[in-house]
């Protein structure tokens, strides 16, 4: 079965999230700073943004609204959105 499910879904480890996103973007985690702009600085197109969303939904077992895609412009925004979902 796919590997992404985790029973500790409610725990959000910031650095783990950072490396997850860095792996999707194929960059070093240090490049995924809190404020680096996904589109301008990290070359994230709409498909890659969708890939981030789907990967996070699978890993953390949450439903992230696709209307949020436009908002997901930086690591900090993604982190806060996810933290909010997990707290809900």
């Amino acid at each position: 079965m796919p590997e992404q499910t985790t029973s500790a879904a409610a725990v959000l480890d910031t650095e783990d999230l950072r490396s997850t996103i860095a792996e999707i973007l194929d960059v070093d985690p240090s490049e995924v700073t809190d404020t680096a702009d996904f589109k301008e600085d990290l070359d994230v197109d709409s498909l890659l943004a969708l890939e981030i969303l789907v990967t996070l939904e699978r890993k953390y077992q949450v439903k992230m609204e696709e209307s949020n895609l436009q908002l997901m412009r930086s690591f900090k925004v993604v982190h806060d959105l996810l933290a909010e979902k997990l707290a809900a």
């Binding site: 079965m1 796919p2 498909l47 969708l50 890939e51 789907v54 990967t55 939904e57 699978r58």
Partner: peptide
């Protein structure tokens, strides 16, 4: 097929 059937079509990686 595996991901679509076990997780749902919405969770299939677009890549």
């Amino acid at each position: 097929m595996r991901d679509g059937l076990t997780l749902g079509p919405e969770l299939v990686s677009p890549y």
